[in-house]
Every structure is written in C-alpha cells, then in structure tokens.
Design a protein around this nucleic acid. Structure first.
Lengths: 114, 114
DNA sequence: AGTATTTCCTTCTAAATCGTAGAACAAATA
DNA sequence: TATTTGTTCTACGATTTAGAAGGAAATACT
C-alpha cells in the first residue's frame, strides 16, 4: 500500500488497465500491450507487474465469472484505484511539462497523433 | 551501443539533458531534477544513469573547461544524440497515443499545463 | 609565497526494486 | 482425458537508488 514510484513498464500496464476497463485481465493486457507497442511480453512479466501495482495500491482485482467459451476459465479482473489515477495524472502532467521545455518538442503540442 | 529500453528515470534524465543544453552536467541535472519534481535524488543515481545512457548511445559527453568560480572544477557536459532524440520522440508519441485512449485523459490534450 | 581548507564535481561500490521469461498448475469444454 | 484459457510460482538480469571516496581549482591564512 506504499505509494512508491512507477516504473516505465508499470505505468504502461496501469494505463492499459484503465483503457481496457472490464476487459482488463492479464492475458488480454499482454495482447493489448503487444498490439500497441509491437514489442512482445511474456505473460509472467505482466502478471508480476500487476501484482506489484496491486501491492502499491494503484489497482485492485476481483475474480470474474467464467465465460461459456472453450477453456473459458475465470479471469482476474483488475481495476484502477483513485490512487492509481492520481499517480497517472501526475506522471502525465510532469511529462507534458518537461516536453514543453525541450525546444525540439515544444511545438508538438499542436500536432498530436502525427 | 545497444538500443534497449528506456527506464522511467532514464527518460527524464535524457530529457533534462536536452533541456539544459550546454549546462547539462551531472550536478546541475540533479538540481534541476529536484526542482522540477520536488523529489530528491542522489548524485550517484544521476551519474550511473548518465553512464548507462551513454553506453546505450543516447548521449555523448566531453569534458568542459573549468570555470573561475571557487572550486569550479571541470565538468563533464552531456549532449543528446540523434538516437537519443529518436527514442524520446518514440516514447512521447506512444504515451500520447495511450493517453488519448484513456477516457479520463482523452480530453486533457487541450488543457496543457493546467 | 606556500600550504591548508573549502567548494564543486566525478568515480566507484553496493544494495533494493523493477522488468523479464517460462515452467507449473487449475478449471472449463469437447 | 485432451485441449484451451488463464493464473500462480520461481528465478534472474537490468534499472534505480544511496553514499563513500577521490580529485582539482579557488580562497584563506600564516
């Protein structure tokens, strides 16, 4: 429950949990990660990070219902906490501030998504 | 010279080097870091990160002249490389993309610096 | 002038936390 | 029971963090 720092991988995973909403469970997160970054991750990496994020209080989890698809095992669904949102926001604001001070990126503010 | 991943602290330090320009030497970077983040860093942390960033080819360094102030020892000035710029840009674009997908942050795009 | 002291800054050493991979295990359907 | 979806456990390398040790230039002191 100690609010420590957020590593780079941790931050991405936390954001992905926020983006995926009800679909935020390890396997899915790993797939989303790969499709968004193009780089591959091991499922173990995602799981241990999720656990660490949970320990820090940035997210909580609950077991979901098992679905009716073949092998559809019960999933552990993760949800971002208020504390998690806060740390993400802080991180975002900080980076935005830094970028705006770096001459080369300063004007990128207006060219989002290019 | 292997272009590996960029940790969260590494990214901030690299950005700070870009922002500080000719004044980018360890001590100064550490001070700038503290004033911008409010969190304290040990000088050793900065130095080892700078060295690692150098190894990865994201920045280079050269010894500067000693200044005329008391104790004004020669500084090692760091400069960001093209590869460093590239990795920062990639990281920035990636984060921007993720944030825009997180409902809660999606519209923050227009409210920079708040 | 010559030496000690202070200040600014880097290098080295060590330890804790984060990031990564993959094997082992569990539950549901066919 | 075989296959598929998923989680939990075990380990190790890389990043992050701290602080001690060392070194050079400017100032203070005799």
């Amino acid at each position: 429950m100690k609010e420590t720092r957020l590593g780079e991988f941790e931050e991405v995973i936390l954001l992905l949990v926020g983006i995926l909403g009800e679909e935020a469970y390890a396997f899915n997160i790993a797939e989303e990660f790969e499709s968004q970054t193009g780089r591959s991750v091991s499922i173990g990496a995602v799981h241990s990070t999720l656990t660490r994020l949970d320990d820090k209080g940035f997210l909580t989890s609950k077991m979901g219902k098992s679905t009716a698809e073949r092998g559809g095992r019960r999933k552990r669904i993760y949800t971002i906490t208020a504390s998690g949102r806060r740390v993400l926001k802080t991180s975002k604001d900080f980076r935005t501030s830094l970028w705006s001070q770096f001459p080369e990126f300063a004007m990128d503010k207006l060219v989002l998504g290019s």
